[in-house]
Design a protein around this nucleic acid. Structure first.
Length: 460
RNA sequence: GGCGAGUUAGCAAAGCGGUUAUGCAGUGGACUGCAACUCCAUAUAGACCGGUUCGACUCCGGUACUCGCCUCCA
């Protein structure tokens, strides 16, 4: 029985999709004006695990992850670069796809861009105006009348009166109330624009998700996810827009990933303390980065550090080492073990990946012991390790390839050295054998003697 | 100030009202020519103060501290 923590109700709930056997999920994606950082990676990987697991449970999942391809930051950056905003966004979308692919994130079923849904957004804005939830004061902007919507604050736990205190109205704005937010933004000189009943302009940020969610998944859908900082105001505003316009519950289950921190502070663009996925991938294998991201529960904050990445590498290495040399082709996974059962129990408890990994390590110890009793049972256990790892998006690489990766050493030379050591050992010249091993170790190559001979890997 | 989350062994990170989380690191041992891998054993926990209970890391209350949101941010 799958349970998911719902931000809206602040508790774990038994998950029950609207249509039996189907899950419709929308996750807020990227604003494409720069490279993705590790915080983005966490959202990508967390919801990738959710998708993989739901599919493994037999649900037909429709996963939509939008792209914000027009907004103030994009326009600003494009101007700084002296390029059109579309040139910038196209480039960044390609970079994002590259990064997410490296991290083993499966592509979503749909990836709608804001600029492709301008008409739908305008329709929704018109509806909101008709119903009295929005107004166009005549300066080219359209605003949402926050006080008109009863449920405002229900997701983030905000109280209107308290929000009021800090709210301000910008100089060019004509809001009735400081809390009102923009649905349509009149274009200034030189800015990209679309024609509209309220003048040339572009959509506000929040309306795109309301419009695209409706178009891609319907007026009410099962899961809406995103990063921790989107809870307010973004998701709160989405609820206000969609529920006012459609007159229906927007989303049943709201899921938010935890923040990625650096030195115990949130990693964010505004603090400037972020690491891009790109730069982290230069130092660590992508699967290690992914392992790091799933090594704590998706809602917990996670601290980015060299140490934690290093440890993720060592841990993943242990898992791969267990699979090393096993021929899993066509091998049916061992069924009926408590490991499999406990792994699923962990995942069904709000996608508890650290606990699931704990079970995987116990299974691996069992497998390592089973190897001594012959290949057959070990392979079946290995197939189970690989199957369960697949639900997390790890352990699908060739173990040998993983263990040998990350070094910059000529394999022919290594094999030559191994032969040299073998000869020295045969001649009982252990000093020479050790010298050869140390020479390899100096290059990061670690030798492992097995019954079948000597293998090697790159030391982490 | 308002709202929310958290504080677990050297480090990371889970579950659980009574019985080993798990991984890394440490210690002892097996294996090995010696190592590595692997296996076995083992020490080190539950911020603080109260309460409930036969029994609390786990439930309740309070205190301290940390973090997040309240402004663009995944």
């Amino acid at each position: 029985m799958l349970q998911i923590y719902n931000t809206l109700t602040r508790k774990k709930e038994v998950f029950k999709p609207i249509h039996e056997g189907e899950v419709r999920m929308y996750v807020c994606g990227m604003t494409v004006y720069d490279l993705c950082h590790i915080g983005h990676a966490r959202v990508l990987v967390s919801f990738d695990v959710v998708t993989r697991y739901l599919r493994a449970k037999g649900y037909k999942v429709t996963y939509v992850r939008n792209i914000t391809d027009v907004d103030d930051k994009i326009i600003k950056r494009a101007n700084e670069n002296g390029e059109t905003f579309t040139a910038l966004t196209e480039r960044m979308i390609a970079e994002m796809h590259k990064d997410s692919g490296e991290l083993g994130v499966l592509p979503p079923d749909a990836e709608p861009k804001a600029t492709a849904y301008i008409a739908e957004m305008q329709d929704m804005i018109s509806t909101l105006i008709e119903k009295g939830y929005a107004y166009a004061p005549g300066n080219g902007d359209v605003y949402y009348r926050v006080h008109k919507f009863d449920g405002y604050g229900k997701l983030s736990g905000k109280i209107l009166e308290e929000l009021q205190a800090g709210a301000r109205i910008g100089v060019d704005e004509m809001k009735e109330d400081p809390l009102d937010f923009v649905l349509w933004k009149g274009a200034k000189e030189g800015e990209p624009y679309w024609e509209s009943p309220w003048g040339n302009g572009r959509p506000g940020w929040h309306i795109e998700c309301s419009a695209m969610g409706k178009c891609c998944l319907g007026e009410t859908f099962d899961i809406h996810g995103g990063g921790p900082d989107l809870k307010f105001p973004h998701h709160e505003n989405e609820i206000a827009q969609s529920e006012a316009a459609n007159g229906k519950t927007f989303v049943n289950t709201w899921m938010h990933a935890g923040a990625v921190r650096v030195d115990n502070e949130k990693m964010s663009k505004s603090l400037g303390n972020f690491f891009t996925i790109r730069e982290v991938l230069e130092k660590y294998p992508a699967e290690v980065v992914r392992y790091f991201l799933i090594s704590s529960q998706y809602r917990s904050p996670i601290n980015y550090s060299e140490d934690s990445l290093k440890e993720a590498g060592v841990r993943l290495e242990r898992l791969y080492t267990a699979l090393e040399g096993l021929n899993l082709d066509g091998v049916e996974p061992e069924r009926g073990t408590s490991y499999e059962e406990r792994f699923h129990a962990a995942m069904e408890d709000d996608f508890n990946t650290p606990e699931a990994l704990g079970v995987l390590f116990e299974l691996v110890r069992h497998l390592n012991k089973a190897r001594k009793d012959g290949e057959a049972n070990a392979a079946a256990l290995g197939a189970l390790v690989k199957e369960l790892g697949g639900l997390l998006g790890i352990l699908q690489d060739n173990p040998d390839a993983f263990l040998k990766s990350g070094g910059d050493v000529d394999e022919a030379w290594i094999l030559e050295m191994i032969e040299k050591r073998k000869a020295a050992k045969a001649a009982k010249d252990f000093a020479e054998a050790d010298r050869v091993r140390e020479e390899l170790a100096a290059q990061g190559v670690q030798l492992k003697d097995t019954r079948e001979g000597t293998t090697w890997q790159i030391e982490r």
